[in-house]
């Protein structure tokens, strides 16, 4: 069995989890295996949706002890489920929780782990993963020598394709309490906007923005395109009051949107490390020699303070982002 740990948000499967589950289904089809989707929490209402993404079996662990995330409790739950089901592959999305729990569960299982992968394949029951390394300047193919093979999938890379599965529900016992660590409180949840790592469209600003207040024009363009705003390290470190959570790059977020619009960003290697996986890259910069143009599918050499408002105006006129 290929077991996929899935996260719920507001009673729905989170998109990165649906992507991981969908990829699990494709691997299972290629290797004649079954797919299990595993959920854990105070309530697993909404887990049935996993059948839409190809789950043959839906495993749910519900209980008060699982109301808040605990690294050791969830790792134990995942490892126990792998053993109980005789699963040979354990997947999750490379989200904050996925990246926290999978390596711990892998160590518990004595299993190899490939993190934040952008490609997976399976031959003769052996998983093979491809992942970017060295700031996206190379791709490493990872193979496993352990009986159980584990990986997290990078959000926005694998398509979440609907494919009906049997979706037989089985319940798992929630672990008793007394965990080594537990989440007590969630702070500063951004109001309704999707996170950079899951966004389809990102409008990012760099040193060329000159001031934090000028990011307002990027917000307006992002709103018109249905996207969110990011920033380069130069902008975040410039003392303009931009939070680190906005930072795209090697020491910030690694993103892979469909469209990435870099405004006043020169394209330092540290920034490229965070966004080179974008499907389409647009560069707007007044310096025609800026390295970002080497990466861009479309480039505009010009003053971003003129071009960005024109883009917003044109996007509204064309009705983009309205659907």
């Amino acid at each position: 069995m290929i077991l996929v740990f899935c996260e719920l948000k507001d009673g729905q499967i989170r998109k990165p989890s649906a992507e991981a589950l969908s990829e699990g289904r494709r691997l299972a089809d290629a290797s004649g295996k079954k797919v299990g989707a595993l959920f854990a929490g105070a309530s697993c209402a909404g887990a049935a949706e996993a059948a839409k993404f190809g789950a043959d079996v839906i495993l749910t662990a519900e209980g008060a002890t699982l109301a808040s995330y605990s690294s050791d409790a969830f790792a134990q739950l995942l490892a126990d489920a792998v053993k109980a089901k005789g699963a040979t592959v354990l997947l999750a999305a490379a989200t904050a929780v996925g990246k926290d729990v999978l390596p711990r569960a892998a160590a518990r299982l004595g299993a190899g782990y490939a993190s934040d992968v952008t490609g997976l394949s399976m031959a003769d029951g052996k998983l093979q993963a491809v992942r970017p390394v060295y700031a996206g300047k190379a791709f490493a193919t990872t193979t496993f020598s352990s009986a159980v093979q584990t990986a997290t999938t990078r959000p926005n890379v694998f398509p979440a394709a609907e494919k009906a599965g049997a979706g037989a529900v089985e319940t798992l016992a929630a672990p008793a309490g007394d965990f080594k660590s537990v989440v007590k409180e969630i702070l500063a949840k951004a109001g309704g906007k999707v996170d950079l790592s899951e966004a389809n469209v990102i409008v990012s600003g760099g040193r060329g923005m000159k001031d934090g207040a000028n990011f307002k024009i990027l917000e307006e363009l992002a709103d018109a395109l249905g996207g969110v705003v990011g920033a380069s390290r130069a902008a975040v470190d410039a003392g303009w009051g931009l939070p680190h959570s906005m930072q795209v790059g090697q020491t910030g977020k690694v993103v892979s949107p469909t469209l990435y619009i870099a405004c006043g960003i020169s394209g330092a290697i540290q920034h490229i490390a965070g966004m080179s996986g974008s499907k389409f890259i647009v560069a707007i910069n007044k310096d025609p020699e800026a390295p970002i143009f080497k990466l861009a599918n479309y480039g505009i050499v010009g003053d971003l303070f003129e071009v960005v408002p024109e883009l917003t105006k044109a996007a509204k006129a064309m009705g983009i982002g309205q659907n």
Partner: peptide, 23 residues
């Protein structure tokens, strides 16, 4: 538990296009 079996450079991105005219 795992090993790197191959390391490869990423494919070159196709050359981009500069858009002309005023803003």
């Amino acid at each position: 538990g795992a090993q790197v079996s191959a390391l490869a450079l990423p494919p070159e991105r196709p050359a981009g296009r500069l858009l002309q005219g005023d803003a």
